[in-house]
Amino acid sequence: MPQILTGLKKDLGGFSVARILPQPARRSLGPFVFLDEMGPADFAPGQGIDVRPHPHIGLATITWMFAGAIGHRDSLGTAIDIHPGAVNWMTAGRGITHSERTPATERAAGHRMHGLQAWVALPVIHAEVEPAFDHVPPDALPRYSADGVEAVVIAGDLWGLASPVKFPHPIHYAQVQMQAGARLTVPAGRDGFAGERGVLPIAGAVALDGLALERGTLVVLDDGDAELLATEPTLLMLAGGAPYPERRHLEWNFVSHDPARIAQAVADWRAGRFAIVPGDPEHIPY
């Protein structure tokens, strides 16, 4: 039987976040060590989210929106808004600071916000690379189309299509839309689905080998091929990749295979040794 993880919801004041990974029952899925579903939430005019500057090490963050927008600013000087269909990929490496706030236009008008934020741990040999940020617009992402299935390859290689988002480890991450009655095979070890594989239903109704899947649950597939059948129009995510041989430790916003490196990052943040976000003097204390 597949492993089923239900997102653990937390109210952040005005909107909720469901923590899908990590959980006690499962700490990672391939290189994915963190996965949050943000919303859906409806903000009245004048309202929005304000995640003050905070640090990361040893990972890359992936922001993917279904509705609304988030304004990203970081210590590299990046300032960009992300909207549905685009990718914000931030490589923390040896250390980066960033903030996430509702853009002025959406805040003034009121809006619906719904998205996913994922962290993928960097390979040990890449854990201390220079920080970097990449924004990939929707028209740069490859698209897969089959009978009643439309998919966007966010990261990795799937269905013979390669995302422009580069990651130095086998990974797959895609958004899939299925019409009612459509079927999709998720093969094991072929077409880029190597390693661990998970399905996250976002909207609609879909069954996995006859098992109805609930929205907001991460379903980790068994070995072997699996088939998805949409019983109504459905939106879902596919995620996974090759697991690492080394255990990853998570402490606050830090990820590393070495607990001593995390302790150093905590000390550096407390002492103000991380770079600041230009124009955003606030920060989240450890």
Rank of each mutant, 00 (worst) to 15 (best):
R107W: 01
A108F: 09
A109M: 13
A109K: 15
A109P: 02
G110Y: 00
H111C: 08
H111V: 11
R112D: 01
M113C: 07
M113I: 04
M113K: 02
M113P: 05
M113W: 01
M113E: 05
M113V: 02
H114T: 06
G115A: 09
G115R: 02
G115N: 03
G115F: 05
G115L: 00
L116F: 10
L116Q: 00
Q117H: 08
A118G: 12
W119F: 09
W119D: 07
W119C: 07
V120M: 13
V120L: 11
V120R: 05
A121K: 05
L122W: 02
P123W: 00
P123S: 06
V124E: 11
H126P: 00
H126K: 12
A127K: 13
E128V: 07
P131Y: 05
A132R: 11
D134W: 09
D134M: 03
D134T: 13
V136D: 01
P137H: 11
P137D: 08
L141V: 13
P142Q: 05
S145M: 15
S145E: 15
D147C: 06
G148A: 08
G148Q: 02
V149M: 02
A151V: 07
A151E: 03
A151I: 09
V152P: 03
V153T: 06
I154N: 01
A155T: 10
A155I: 03
A155L: 01
G156I: 06
G156R: 03
D157T: 15
D157I: 15
D157K: 14
L158K: 06
L158E: 00
W159V: 10
W159K: 09
W159I: 05
G160I: 12
G160N: 13
L161Q: 12
L161I: 13
L161S: 09
L161V: 08
L161G: 07
L161D: 07
S163H: 03
V165W: 10
K166A: 13
K166F: 11
P168T: 07
H169E: 04
H169R: 11
I171S: 06
H172A: 07
H172M: 01
Y173G: 01
A174Y: 04
A174N: 05
A174S: 09
A174D: 01
A174T: 08
Q175H: 14
Q177A: 15
M178H: 02
Q179S: 15
Q179A: 15
A180V: 00
A180Q: 12
G181Y: 09
R183F: 12
L184Q: 02
L184D: 02
T185D: 15
T185V: 12
T185H: 00
